[in-house]
């Protein structure tokens, strides 16, 4: 399933219309005017994306609930989970920061996974879920606000910065974040517009 040869594709970056011609495997079409990527040839199947999304859901649960890193100093030890870090920022009077971190590292990834599961499970069975158009638009927004990859690097950076001060070690949550970053990159490579090709 895919685009029909000769149908129109409009460049999202400059608005120029192109007549579609099939792509060779693993190549990408670029806009003839502004050189932005119009489409990529290789796409995952609905079942493939669904499998990656289920894996991402598992990684997400571990990433938000397990400790990200631990720190020990003269007998005392501290661990931090993502939820705790947000809660501490809130208690310290930095509510806007806590909300921003909560949206970008907690809610947007949850919506990214949850809405995809809601859409992909019926699609894999050949049905169109209720509210499909709204879900696809919400998924665009979730992808914009999802900053899991930045947060992962932030955890690594914190670990390195603390290494001079105390004994630090990465914990399960950090590995789950790494897996989540890779899974999100793979899922996002498929884009969202192709979901409409599976709906009549």
């Amino acid at each position: 399933m895919g685009r029909v040869e000769g149908s129109l594709v409009v460049c999202g970056q400059c608005g120029l219309a192109h007549r579609w011609q099939p792509l060779p495997e693993t190549s990408q079409a670029r806009c003839t005017r502004c050189d932005a990527v119009l489409a990529r040839a290789h796409r995952l199947s609905i079942q493939g994306i669904l499998a990656l999304t289920v894996a991402a859901a598992a990684a997400y649960v571990v990433a938000i609930s397990a400790p990200l890193m631990s720190l020990s100093l003269r007998g005392g030890a501290e661990t931090a989970t993502l939820m705790q870090a947000i809660a501490i920022a809130w208690q310290e009077g930095q509510q806007p920061i806590a909300i921003l971190a909560g949206i970008t590292a907690l809610l947007a990834p949850a919506a990214f996974i949850g809405l995809r599961l809601y859409v992909l499970v019926p699609l894999a069975a050949g049905n169109k879920p209720p509210g499909f158009a709204w879900c696809v638009r919400a998924l665009h927004q979730a992808a914009r606000w999802n900053m899991v990859e930045v947060f992962t690097v932030g955890v690594l950076l914190s670990l390195v910065r603390l290494a001079g001060l105390a004994e630090t070690s990465p914990q399960a949550g950090l590995f789950a974040l790494g897996a989540l970053t890779a899974l999100f990159a793979a899922i996002e490579s498929a884009g969202l517009k192709h979901l409409w090709w599976h709906v009549q």
């Binding site: 931090a80 870090a85 310290e92 920061i97 970008t104 603390l162």
Partner: peptide
């Protein structure tokens, strides 16, 4: 550019050893 926001939030959440060593935003 969100990177430093996350780093400060994480440091404030982990470095909590009272007067010995602590970080706040």
């Amino acid at each position: 550019s969100m990177l430093d926001v996350y780093v400060v939030v994480l440091l404030a959440a982990t470095v909590r050893f009272g007067p010995l060593a602590s970080v706040s935003t």
